[in-house]
């Protein structure tokens, strides 16, 4: 029996966004199935915030189309199906946390119960405080509360943990995971690799306005060449290294050989047993998202 594919949470097709001569986003195409946490990972200036603005209808693409929950971004926002936490956004200083959350909640057709919102954002004790006296991390949690208040199908968070301390961050991610667990889609933009690695089901890596990789954190690590085997080669010939099992690329610099491999164990075994080379200072590194990230986003 054929299953009917559900409407994607969002889909970008050949999207470009130029600001004058600056090409913030260029030829970006991606589709996100509904449900789960998606990280939009990239270095500063990669086009993350522009992509977020396009998804929220705050910016229109120079070319290409953006669809959110089956309609235009403006339609999705107007119907209350999208909630967002933007990078910058002061709260009205004269209002209390409870008033702000209550107001935004009232704008949506099917909001979460107030108590659940305050729980998710860990704000229970702050409800009566005016926004003016909040710390940076507290204000950030209020903004998270405003984003989830309407129980949106798509929750978009742009660099959500900026200004949060370690404890706030931990609680914030707990709240985010709890929200995504209800079958909703959460997209968060970040330049912190460990956030993408630990909290996303899927990672979209963007660099220079283009999609550089798309997959689970494990897949991203694998596609970017897995691990790195390095050793001192000295004057010995490098011929045959690229034929070793698992090796995807070979680089020799200053007498040091760097082998990218998707199977470090077989590569090192073959290096000792299958060659006559004298192997000094052998190191195996990588397998971290960070290496993959650097490999994927470095300048060509």
């Amino acid at each position: 029996m054929e299953t009917i594919p559900s409407t994607p949470a969002f889909a970008l097709t050949g999207v470009a966004k130029h600001f004058g001569d600056v090409r913030a986003v260029e030829g970006l195409s991606l589709t996100a199935a509904a449900g789960g946490a998606i990280a939009l990972l990239g270095p500063n200036g990669a086009g993350k915030s522009t992509t977020v603005s396009l998804l929220l209808g705050l910016a229109r693409p120079t070319s290409g189309t953006v669809r959110v929950l089956g309609g235009t971004p403006e339609e999705a926002v107007a119907r209350g199906r999208v909630g967002a936490m933007l990078q910058q956004g002061e709260l009205m200083p004269e209002l209390t946390v409870g008033e702000l959350v209550g107001f935004v909640r009232g704008l949506y057709p099917r909001p979460l119960p107030l108590s659940e919102i305050l729980d998710l954002a860990d704000l229970g004790s702050l409800a009566k405080r005016r926004a003016k006296g909040l710390s940076g991390g507290q204000a950030q949690r209020v903004r998270f509360a405003l984003a989830v208040a309407g129980a949106p199908d798509l929750l978009v968070l742009d660099e959500p943990t900026a200004a949060m301390d370690v404890e706030s961050r931990r609680r914030f991610w707990d709240g985010m995971r709890a929200y995504a667990a209800g079958g909703r889609t959460v997209l968060f933009a970040t330049h912190y690799l460990e956030e993408a690695d630990q909290h996303a089901d899927r990672v979209l890596v963007i660099a220079r306005g283009r999609l550089a990789a798309d997959g689970t954190p494990a897949e991203i690590k694998a596609t970017a060449g897995g691990r790195l085997v390095t050793f001192r080669l000295g004057d010995q010939p490098a011929a045959g290294l690229d034929a070793l099992p698992g090796v995807t690329s070979v680089e020799i610099r200053d007498g040091v050989a760097r082998l990218r491999t998707d199977d470090a164990a077989r590569t090192t075994a073959a290096l000792y047993r299958g060659t006559t080379l004298e192997v000094h200072d052998l190191e195996v590194s990588g397998g971290h998202l960070e290496d993959a990230f650097l490999a994927l986003t470095r300048e060509p």
């Binding site: 705050l58 107007a78 910058q88 935004v104 704008l107």
Partner: peptide
């Protein structure tokens, strides 16, 4: 301050 963009991403 960003309050307006914040309103713009609600159904208002």
């Amino acid at each position: 301050s960003g309050w307006l963009p914040q309103l713009q991403v609600t159904p208002l």
